[in-house]
Design a protein around this nucleic acid. Structure first.
Lengths: 247, 247
DNA sequence: AGAAATAATGCACGAATCAGCAAAATAAAA
DNA sequence: TTTTATTTTGCTGATTCGTGCATTATTTCT
């Protein structure tokens, strides 16, 4: 077998699986490990792949220093725009935390009528800064990782509140387990958010669909709708559409 | 499984959920805790994530509030350092809003013991971000100009609170009129802050000495001390020193 | 302050890598 | 074709790398 032929096969395998193991290639091509290694070395020199210990990965798979400021920013913006459509003039809404909420906060029109309640200091500041809308921040202990107010104060304040609509971000979302979270305090807050509102919309990027975290916030059917960046008739959403509205 | 592959999965999990636990990753990836820890270590070294006790959090969850030009920054830092001297280990303190408070928030040591209550979302976020100290945000309507929580909710929550010490920024400060402010809501909040604390320290740059605003918060004598960037025996402070302590 | 959870450290073992060398294959020249 | 030069391949041993385990620190919770 020619060297070039072999290397083409290797490239092919990498494109196919994003990664290859040196030992696998050795068996597949019936050559020694050294030969495979030398091939990988050359392919790396010519910049076609990235060699790692144990094998090699495709260049796109190995993201060298790409550090997005906000992960999946565009998708989240898209979701925020859809959500904004539900926020009619004069409504009182309740917003949770997370990057999607921040995007939503950014696009609320300056003179929108209504009141926003939120447990997220960041959301509160963003809205207060950009718009003249009334912002009520529900205070409590500030969580060190999610930057959201949590704790009994939050729960009790929310229990005295009644709003038309709430927006909640998702950590895990699946048909079977509904909305799930991995932080007990945050889970409690989300439950309270839902209790305080007539309707609740879940905002989530599609990547979180069919994932489950440790604790359940609420089953799917209790939500007014699920908002993702996907088209409502996307295949991935169909099983959700049977239980609740998808947007 | 390739190391590279594993680390990509970890990054992805963190992007999705902002925070991951070492034990969860260990189960998810079917490797020992040590391996996960080493991965997290490497990812931190290359600057892609931030490691915390028990797991790791996303680096990209950075706070977008910027502070372009702070007037008299150096003087304010100086004041903040003096104020920090009063914040002993284990104390519960209450902080108002304003740029001096932000400087104070920035210099609180990472592992300082104690609890901070504040009506300023900015202060709360700054502390929550930089330190492991407990931060309780007193919620309410977010003022559009001072970015401080105001209104009846704040007042009533503060009335149920009792702390050792509070730090308040000044808008106007004079021997004759004491601490004065020009915003009715903020004035009310400051009054409530004082009522909730055993002692109150006023933080002010010297420029505001001998100035008076429309509404009085409290006369001078009710303060434990006044903190400025000046030396305590500066000429300008002498008339204040007759009424209360100056630092 | 004590108990439990989490992290760091040192060690051992196997797997992967590398360098140099000899054999084999291929290409080029006589 | 034979001979020679060049490239490619496989092997050996030394070395590094990745992983898990045991032990010791550190942190957190109560």
């Amino acid at each position: 077998m020619l060297q070039e032929e072999r290397q083409n096969i290797i490239i092919n395998q990498i494109n196919l699986h994003h990664k290859v193991l040196t030992t696998d290639l050795s068996k597949l091509l019936n050559v020694s490990l050294d030969t495979v290694r030398r091939d990988l070395h050359e392919l790396e020199e010519s910049g076609r792949i990235v060699k790692v210990h144990g094998g090699a990965v495709s260049k796109s798979f190995h993201l060298p220093f790409q550090q997005p400021q906000v992960y999946a920013r565009e998708e989240k913006k898209e979701i925020a725009y859809k959500a904004l459509g539900l926020f009619k003039e004069g409504m009182n809404v309740l917003m949770g935390g997370g990057t999607i909420m921040l995007e939503l906060a950014r696009i609320i029109p300056k003179n929108h009528k209504g009141t926003v309640f939120t447990v997220s200091p960041l959301v509160a500041l963003e809205i207060a800064q950009r718009s003249t809308i009334r912002v009520i921040l529900i205070g409590g202990e500030v969580s060190h990782d999610a930057y959201v107010c949590t704790g009994p104060t939050v729960i009790s304040q929310l229990s005295e509140l009644r709003v038309d609509l709430s927006f909640i971000g998702a950590n895990g979302l699946s048909v079977k387990d509904g909305l799930t979270d991995n932080d007990w305090d945050v889970m409690q807050v989300k439950k309270a958010l839902m209790k305080a509102s007539d309707k609740t919309a879940v905002l989530s990027i599609s990547e979180k669909l069919d994932t489950t975290q440790k604790m359940q916030v609420s089953p799917l059917r209790s939500f007014e709708c699920i908002i993702t960046e996907l088209s409502p008739n996307d295949k991935r959403l169909q099983k959700y559409a049977k239980v609740t509205k998808v947007v």
